[in-house]
Each structure stands twice: as C-alpha cells, then as structure tokens.
Nucleic acid binder design. Structure first.
Length: 403
DNA sequence: AGTCCACAGGAAGGGCAGGCGA
DNA sequence: TCGCCTGCCCTTCCTGTGGACT
C-alpha cells in the first residue's frame, strides 16, 4: 500500500468518514431516549419505585438477567426520570448508582462503603478505618435530611461472591436505625441463581420485588439495531444484511444487545478505516474476531505479572503440543519463567489459586479429574483460539519480557 | 479391600502498605 | 510516635478425594 502522507490521514478525520453520521449512538455509555421491547419491564420498575414520589419507601427490588438484556439501561432510564419528576414536584429523592464490579472502586465491603460515604459528601480515606466506623459515617450522612434514598447496586453478584452477603444484611437493616430518611436497594445481577446462596433473611428482604429480564431474540435485536443505525450511520453506507448478521450473531450468544451494538460499531469502524464505500458482512466477521481479541488482550494486560507468568506457561505447554496440561506441568514451567524474568517464585498452592482466577476470567477452562493411581489434578486447556493465544504470547514476550 | 498418588482447596496467619486518632 | 485498623498477597499446614493399582 502506498504510504499516505500524515496530512492526508488527518484530513480524512477532519472531513469525517463517509460511514458514520453519529457514532456515539452505538457506544455503551449512550443513554437512549427509548428502550425498545422493554416497555413492560420499565413500567414494572417505575411502579415499584413510584411510591418514593409520595415520600414512601419503595420495596427493595432485585433485577436479574443475562448481560446485555437491558437491566442497567432500564434502571438508569427509570431512575433518571424518577429524579426529574421528584425535582419538579419538590419531592426529596436521592438516587445512587454503583457498579460493584469496578475494580479498586467498589469491589470490597470497605470500598463500597467508602464510595457510598463519598456519594453523600463524607470524605473517608481509601483504607485505614474500621468497617463499623464507616457504617456509622454512612448512617450519619444519609440520615442528615429527610429523604428517600434509592441505592442501585449493579453487578451485585460479583461483590457478594467475593466478600459474602454480610454488607447486604447491614444495608437492609439500616432502615431500623434511620430516623429521617429511608433506604431502598435495587440489586442488579447477571447471575440467575445468585439469590440461591444468600442468607435467607437477606434473600427475602432484597427480593421484596423481583424482575427477570429475558434475552432479546434475533428479531428484537434487529429492531433495536435498525432504530439506532438509522441515526448512527450515513444513508446508504449500511447494507441490510449487516444488521441481520449482527443480530443473528448476538442472538446466538444469548440475546446480548450490547454485543450486537458493539459488532455494528466495530464493523463500521473497520469499514471506515479501509475507506470502504459502506459496511458489509465481511466487516462484521472481522469485527467479531477483533472484539474477542481486544477483550482478551485487555483482560490479560491488566493482570498482575504473576498471573501473566502462569498464563504464559499454559500457552507454552499448549503450543508444544502437550496433551492434558495439569497443575504440576504448569508449576514446572512457571518455576523457570519466574526465575528467568526476575519474579519471585510463588508456592504451588498460590499458583493453584492463580489458575482458578484465570479460569474465572474465561481465558482458560479447567476441570478437576482423578487419574486414579496417578492422583487427582486439574486439567487445563486454553479457552481462546490459537490465533489469539499466539497474539497474547507475543504481547507477553515483547511487552512483559517472559521467556 | 486397602493403598496411595497428586493434587484440590479450606483455614489460619504473616507481612506489607496505607491510614486513623491519641 | 504508637497502637490499631484495613485490604491484599502470600505461605504454611492441613484434610479430603476418585479411582488405578496391588
């Protein structure tokens, strides 16, 4: 390819590509004015939270459904309108949204409480205080004025899995000690069986009301995409079959609307980058593998070096055609890797935990099996394609110097 | 039937960094 | 400065286990 002068490259950005009209409509932080095929769910949330407008405490609500089914979008949608309505009518409602999965922000009991104190204007250190002091500060903060507080805890399942359900018990019990204000909790979870493992008292209080978000089917996804695409893309830059393909792929995955929108956006970006006239099905295929690769690469880059060393060892074993990779094999390779790259060599017990964490991240699959006379162990295999594992290995070698 | 492998994975606690109030 | 608190990462010690082998 002939090398373009920088000037030309930049000029193309200034002129704007000929693909997108308004790309931000396809990004995940775009808050739509309507959420198609979720009218029923929106009305349910609204009628559950509605009493807040009369100064009554709404029931706690538990919303669950797989990712990309509109749970977060709908709760945002309803809560922002509720807040507006309250402002118009002089009601005093405070809405707090917290994503419990945000690393280093709200992924432990302490951090969640610190974050809540922060929301209510109490300055607390990021570490150092006893947890009960934090609870006291939080109670003081919320009880300072008469109001209804609605606390939306998104991805609540990840926090409970990590730290247990005690904080939920404490938060639910708060109302007994509050004099002026009242607190309602909206828990949002991707894990459908999340409440099964909760303390029964917590379960019954959290699920005063429950709402299940079913996956979108291909037709619904197509409709959602069409509505967005109309405004996001320039006229004639989008082939009809592209939307069909994006919806079909996302429907296969479990009706994930976010996935569908990502596919469409990235396909558009790829088309734009190659100066194509419009987006076609090939761009969707390319987008699919690009999204997968980016997600995995991003995950791996943010892992601690020790985890990266373990993953490198697994990829190495798998590349060498090693069949049935076991914990012991990984440990052997890891010992060399850590030594060669100046890392402290951790114990096998710790490596066993790191392997489990990689499994949770979805980078590898593991399976505990008994090999009879030859012991009980975990069989590990990569959960990513050869092409991606190659890329990952190169990144680990070139950017993180594993060998 | 009993043994024994190669771990899994729970429990407890050490050590560190960051922070508090006295 | 000191004693105490937190989260986090890690080690040590331990018990449990499915099934091939004897």
């Amino acid at each position: 390819m002939e090398q373009k002068s920088l000037d030309n490259v930049f000029q193309e950005f200034i002129d704007g590509g000929n693909i997108f009209e308004d790309k931000k409509l396809l990004t995940s932080n775009y808050k739509p004015y309507e959420i198609p095929h979720r009218e029923k769910e929106i009305n349910s949330i609204a009628s559950i939270l509605g009493p807040a407008l009369n100064g009554e405490r709404p029931s706690n609500l538990f919303i669950y459904g797989k990712c990309g089914t509109g749970k977060t979008a709908c709760s945002h949608f309803v809560s922002s309108r509720l807040e507006n309505k309250a402002n118009e009518n002089g009601g005093n409602i405070k809405l707090v949204y917290i994503n419990c999965k945000m690393r280093k922000v709200a992924d432990t009991e302490y951090r969640l409480l610190a974050r809540l104190c922060d929301e209510f204007g109490k300055d607390v250190p990021s570490t150092g205080l006893p947890t009960d002091t934090l609870y006291e500060k939080f109670f003081d903060a919320i009880d300072s004025t008469e109001r209804i507080i609605i606390l939306i805890l998104d991805e609540i399942d990840t926090l409970v899995e990590k730290t247990g359900d005690e904080f939920l018990y404490n938060l639910i019990r708060v109302n007994e000690d509050l004099e002026k204000s009242q607190l309602s909790i909206v828990g949002v979870s991707n894990d459908l069986s999340f409440t099964d493992n909760l303390d029964p008292r917590v379960r019954s209080s959290l699920s005063e009301e429950e709402l299940l978000f079913k996956p979108y089917n291909a037709t619904q996804l197509q409709d959602i995409l069409e509505k967005r695409a109309k405004k996001a893309f320039n006229e004639n830059s989008l082939n009809d079959s592209v939307i069909k393909k994006c919806s079909a792929l996302a429907a296969q995955e479990h009706g994930d609307a976010r996935r569908a929108l990502d596919l469409l956006r990235v396909a558009g970006e790829l088309a734009e980058r190659e100066n194509a006239e419009g987006v076609n099905e090939r761009h969707v295929d390319l987008a699919e593998s690009k999204i997968d690769k980016d997600r995995i690469v991003e995950t791996i880059k943010t892992q601690p070096r020790q985890s990266q060393a373990v993953l490198w060892s697994i990829i190495k074993l798998s590349e060498d055609g090693h069949e049935e990779i076991q914990t012991g094999d990984i440990w052997d390779i890891y010992k060399n890797v850590s030594e060669n790259s100046g890392l402290k060599t951790l114990t096998q017990r710790r490596i066993s935990d790191l392997i489990s964490e990689l499994d949770l991240l979805g980078v590898i699959n593991t399976n505990v099996v008994s090999k009879g006379r030859y012991g009980r162990t975990r069989i590990v295999e990569l959960a990513i394609s050869n092409r991606i594992s190659n890329d990952v290995k190169n990144i680990l070698e070139n950017e993180y110097y594993f060998e």
